[in-house]
Design a protein around this nucleic acid. Structure first.
Lengths: 204, 204
DNA sequence: CGCCGGAGACGGTGCGTATCGTCTCGGGCG
DNA sequence: CGCCCGAGACGATACGCACCGTCTCCGGCG
């Protein structure tokens, strides 16, 4: 599965790699993803086009690497490998906290624009999508799953709860509303999601 | 909101319009959305490029019209304006039925490919997204909302239930899993969603 | 005539490939 | 030990190509 036309990774220029990441992220932020071009990235990074084509198969792949590099840096800065969801013993409160934070992030253009671009590309490009899911999406969903697992052991949720599905009960509606702009993204909405998901739509 | 550079719609060629729809849908199905081009559509439809540029602002807009025309035809064929979700009095069963049908549809390439294309485009193009939501998405979500409203009047769900949010508890996770391919789309999954959403993740 | 329609020429832009000449690295030979 | 030389990545740039979106041109029809 390794590249058969193998560029020698050990001789790769770290300088160029970083310059390409910065240029890509900057351009996506400034002119939008649609108008971000390989040639534009190359020019801005002060890099030959071939250097990009040598290491990445597509524009989206560049952005994915750039974005996940950014995420790695941010994670490293915090010191933690992956900040877990807090466990105060109050599942609803913990979920409200993290869902509200997610709302704030999705509303912030700094995250909104590149995330939209990658998501849109992933919707249509299955291969890139797999990469995106494994490297960025899955790890963050895992945090929810872990938190829910802890609650499950304490009997705070159904004993036979399917964790993947449960996670999607929170993230699915939220990202759905965000992606298709079908309604306002507010803290109140986040709180309502937690309430509905935990307690159900049926009367108790 | 009407076109200010107004082509005279009354003199428009219905023949060309249909040919363009058919060509667009066929091409998207055969070569995928990415490789579907305006020039390709024009050639296949036996139509001048200008005829497309005169009536639509973008490739995505053409596909949206083509697809919603298709939906209108299908709806007209059934005779109904919009087939409502059945109301047998058993909310869970009714929802399972329609969610299972949705799963089947999302798995069918005939619907999967163009819907993906439009969704991806909408994620990145707010204007097109609004059109897509109003003309295709919203009407179908309305069916869920109506069915839930009926149940609410009978006290089968919370009296103060927010219908929009409630609908998203079903469609959000489903479309999320479909879009990002984060898990298998099965009838079992649909059933689990209905159970979790109605009864909640907490133990009863 | 006025306007839509088919056809397609046109300049522009970005793609992906193919070479240039340069620079750096590491291995081998004096 | 030091120098040389081949390999390969790099910046730069030229190329052919596909498609874009606009602009004619001409035919047909009201």
């Amino acid at each position: 599965m390794a590249d058969n036309k193998s560029p020698d990774a050990s001789r790769r220029s770290e300088r160029s790699r970083r310059a390409i990441f910065e240029a890509a992220l900057a351009l996506v932020g400034e002119v939008g993803y649609q108008k971000t071009t390989i040639e534009g990235i190359a020019a801005r990074a002060g890099v030959g086009k071939q250097t990009i084509y040598r290491w990445w198969p597509s524009r989206a792949a560049v952005l994915l690497d750039a974005y996940s590099d950014l995420a790695d840096q941010a994670a490293a800065a915090v010191g933690e490998v992956g900040a877990a969801i807090p466990d105060t013993g109050d599942l609803a409160a913990d979920l409200r906290l993290v869902l509200r934070a997610t709302v704030d992030e999705l509303v912030d253009p700094t995250y909104d624009v590149p995330t939209r671009a990658l998501t849109a590309e992933g919707v249509v490009d299955a291969e890139l999508c797999a990469q995106y899911v494994e490297r960025l999406l899955r790890p963050s969903l895992k945090l929810y799953a872990d938190r829910l697992a802890a609650s499950r052991e304490r009997g705070e949720v159904r004993a036979d709860l399917d964790l993947e599905t449960a996670v999607e009960m929170f993230t699915g509606p939220l990202s759905g509303r965000w992606l298709m702009r079908t309604g306002p993204l507010t803290h109140a909405y986040a709180d309502r999601l937690v309430d509905y998901a935990l307690n159900g739509l049926a009367p108790r």
